[in-house]
Structures are given as structure tokens and as C-alpha cells.
Amino acid sequence: MPEQQSSFSIKNWSQDDQPREKLRDKGKSTLSDAELVAILISTGNKNESAVALSQRILASTNHSLNALGKLSLKQLMEFKGIGEAKAITITAALELGRRRKLEEPSALKKIDSSRAVFNIMHPIIGDLPHEEFWIIYLNNSNKVIQKSQLSKGGITGTMVDVRLVLKTALEVGAVALILVHNHPSGTLKPSNADKAVTIKLKKAAEGLDIKVLDHLIITEKEYLSFADEQLM
């Protein structure tokens, strides 16, 4: 049994089939997703190589790295050859990738379209299993000064602390706001609560000459802009 297991170790493969050496000699972009995962787990099981096992794991998520990142340790360990240590390694690597995507350059990002808002916020809330409501604060050049989570969970008008939103806007010198929240259900249809929150914040901000420019609903793949749909 140990001999069968070791024959599928990466270090025992022919050099042309070794993902680590391929990355070193040909560059990271030449590797498939399965080969990259194989580097993380190093070995497969007695019946399949690390690459074959990685291919099977990816096939279970329809070859989606995003879906792979959502698998729990328990779900990963259901694959023969994936113990706790390997499951933790896969989870840690995908979490690093997610955090890398969240990092922003030091220069302030300018908002010139609803798509720009989506590109900023989707990595943060696009695939969450619960709702989160965020405020993006903009300066007079429509550049992002700050983005803050306002609430977590279902959205109702009573959960929106208007005073906190406007207090923060004044503190950071914002002249405009964009509201953003996600719908884990995947639906892009605004609820009555979504519309009520938009009206509530828009009316409150007007008293301080602060504009609410848009409200985006974000799902895992798409978004709806209140401004684009003339719902403001």
C-alpha cells in the first residue's frame, strides 16, 4: 500500500509531468488549475495522481475556483486522498487569492459608471451567503474616499443609521454617496425595503448637500443599478 501511494507523489513523476518543475521552467501561466492545486496537495491517493485528484475535485465544482473556495474543510476531506492538512492548504491558498483581489492601489479609484462600482464591490460581497449593506463615500471628483459596511443581514429601514452615514460623510469630506448591497438569492429585483432605504438616505443627505448617486444590488455574477434603471 505505501509503495502504491508513493508512486503517485509528484517527485516520482517524469520531469515533463511535474507541476513544480513546469512552473519553475515554463512559468506559472503555463499550468492548469488542476496542476496548481496538485502542487498544493503534493500527492494523490493509491489510485490517482495529485493532478488526477485535483481534476476530480475541480470537476465537482464545475471547474470554478470561486466555487472551490466555498467548499468547507469537511467537504474537501470527502475526497479520498485529501486529509485535514491538505484541505487546510487548499482553503488557505484560495483565501490568499481572494484577499489579493481585495487589495487596491494607493491611488483613489474614480467612479465613472455603475460597472466601476460593481468591480470594486463584487470581490467583497458578491459571493457572501448573507446580505451586507455598504456605503461608498466619494469626493468632488467622484473618487472613492472610503467604503464602509453599514449593516449585515437582511435590510430594513430601521437598520440604516442615517446619522452614522452622514457623520462619516462629513468626517471624510464626501460630497456624494453610493449605496451597495448584495442579494445571495441571486435575484436582482429590488425589494420594497431596498427602495425605502434608498429614499430615506437620499432625502437625509440632501439636507447636507450630499448626493446619493446610485444604489447597486450585486449578485454572484450580475448587478442592478438604480440609476441606470431610473429607479432613483
Rank of each mutant, 00 (worst) to 15 (best):
G126M: 01
I217E: 02
Q15T: 13
E35R: 03
L138M: 01
H122L: 03
L166G: 11
L71Q: 09
G126S: 08
G27Y: 07
S54T: 01
H63T: 12
S9P: 12
K80Q: 05
L53H: 08
K203C: 04
L201E: 03
E35D: 05
G97V: 08
I135H: 00
I88P: 05
D33L: 14
G186H: 03
V180K: 15
L96D: 03
S113R: 02
Q5L: 13
D25L: 11
T61G: 08
K143P: 02
L170N: 01
L150N: 04
Q149G: 02
K70P: 07
K74S: 10
E21A: 09
A205M: 05
I178T: 03
S151W: 10
Q55F: 00
S141N: 08
A193S: 08
K167V: 07
S148N: 01
L164K: 10
T43S: 11
K152I: 02
I210V: 06
S225R: 13
G173F: 09
V162A: 04
V162W: 11
L177D: 00
Q75P: 00
T43D: 02
M159E: 02
L150R: 02
G154M: 07
H130E: 12
K203N: 02
R99Y: 10
H181W: 13
Y223C: 05
F8I: 11
H63N: 09
R56I: 00
N66R: 01
P190G: 06
S151A: 00
A87V: 12
T89M: 06
P105V: 07
D17I: 08
S148T: 03
L201D: 00
K221R: 01
E222W: 09
S60A: 01
N47Y: 02
K189R: 14
E78V: 13
V172T: 15
V37L: 11
E21Y: 01
T168Q: 14
E171L: 06
E95G: 07
Q4R: 14
A38V: 08
N142I: 09
K46F: 14
N192Y: 04
A87L: 04
A205Y: 15
S54P: 04
E48T: 10
R100W: 15
A176W: 14
T168S: 10
W134E: 10
I178M: 00
A169T: 08
P19V: 05
V160E: 00
K80V: 01
H63Y: 15
R20N: 11
A227F: 13
A38G: 01
D25F: 03
R24Y: 03
L40S: 11
D228T: 00
K74G: 08
I41E: 14
R98A: 10
K109F: 13
K167T: 06
L73C: 05
A92I: 10
S114R: 13
L40Q: 12
N62Y: 15
A174C: 06
L231R: 15
P190H: 09
N47F: 07
A59N: 07
I41N: 06
V212C: 01
S64V: 07
V212K: 03
S6R: 14
Q149F: 00
R115P: 07
I218T: 15
Y223V: 03
A176Y: 07
A205P: 11
